[in-house]
């Protein structure tokens, strides 16, 4: 465990009454990194952000942000971190520009001084600068919130589910913005329930029920999948799903878009052999026109496997 880095967590634990929100969470974010926290709702992502933003105190363990302890040096941290909570939280009765100027002023700076950093984002909403923030569309609100979190030139940007509830085009735009910001040297920690967004991070931490399941680059996390993986396509889908689940050697079956991702317990066998076996078994059940292909496991497959193949666990599926 390295002691340096913009964010260093060591064995952090946080409970709310009987609920354990975080359990022995340790991770390090490297300077200039775009770091993702990925996992289903209730995984502890927001709690983690609130600890990093000095809004919550961990029960045990240590957390340092920009080299400062989140409990002892909270005032140092607050002026150097930009935090954008999951819920839009700006003043709806103030205009776009008033919100921005207000947040700049409470950080002891001005809109003009922070302008060049937020320019790529703020330019898009500048035509509406006199509009009340409450009357902006979802995507514009999000851009305003990001501008407000950036206007004081923080050294670390914390974004809690910034793209939840935002349309697909705006989501892509938003991630492009994050790339731009990262290029300027900013360290960014971002959380998302969407697996496809995880691929845009340098490294991700998979979180579930307060625990970190794995931390690695998105491609490396896919490789954590322990078995050969196949995409099975065919119709009727319900019959196909039932048939796959009924196979005695089935290890996991999950719907992925229009296909099913299937893995087999016979890991010693060659993948081509397994594919043929599965195809034969399905044909024997009168399922024709079925297609079975070997695929490389993605981060979502790995996540499902790491969660212990627990059925019914909700994982965000991109719209």
């Amino acid at each position: 465990m390295s002691d340096t880095g913009p964010v260093v967590l060591h064995e952090v634990r946080k409970t709310f009454g009987a609920t354990v929100a975080l359990e022995s969470v340790s991770l390090t974010v490297r300077p200039g990194e775009l770091f993702g926290l990925v996992g289903p709702d209730g995984g502890g992502k927001t709690t983690l952000f609130r600890i990093l933003a000095t809004l919550l105190v961990p029960d045990s363990g240590t957390a340092t942000v920009l080299g400062r302890d989140v409990v002892r040096d909270l005032w140092d941290i607050r002026s150097r971190v930009g935090y954008m909570p999951g819920r839009f939280s700006l003043y709806p009765d103030l205009s776009v520009e008033e919100n921005l100027r207000f947040f700049a002023s409470v950080f002891g700076t001005s809109l003009e001084r922070g302008y060049d950093l937020i320019k790529p984002i703020y330019q898009q909403i500048e035509p509406f600068r006199d509009r009340r923030a409450g009357q902006l569309s979802g995507g514009m609100k999000q851009k305003l919130a990001l501008s407000c979190a950036l206007v004081h030139r923080p050294d670390l940007l914390l974004l809690d589910e910034p793209t939840t509830g935002v349309d697909a085009v705006s989501r892509r735009e938003f991630w492009d913005l994050l790339d731009t910001l990262q290029a300027s040297g900013l360290t960014i920690v971002v959380s998302t329930p969407y697996m496809d967004e995880a691929d845009r991070c340098d490294r991700v931490a998979l979180m579930q029920q307060g625990r970190v399941l794995a931390i690695d680059a998105p491609s490396a996390i896919g490789a954590l999948f322990p078995r050969p993986l196949f995409a099975v396509r065919g119709r009727p889908r319900t019959a196909l799903l039932d048939a796959l689940r009924a196979l005695p050697t089935a290890a996991s079956v999950h719907p992925f878009g229009e296909a099913f991702h299937y893995s087999d317990t016979r890991t010693a066998l060659a993948p081509a052999q397994i594919a043929q076996d599965v195809l034969d078994a399905l044909r024997a059940r009168n399922l024709d026109g079925v297609d079975v292909t070997t695929i490389a496991p993605g981060i979502e497959d790995a996540f499902m496997a790491l969660m212990g193949d627990a059925p019914g666990v909700p994982v965000g599926v991109p719209a």
Binding site: A53, T54, L55, W75, R78, S79, V81, Y83, P85, R87, F88, S89, L90, Y91, P92, F103, V106, F107, G108, C148
Partner: peptide, 13 residues
Amino acid sequence: EAGTLEQLNVTPV
């Protein structure tokens, strides 16, 4: 309710 209190809490105010 608006969440702005939390937003203010992460500022140096």
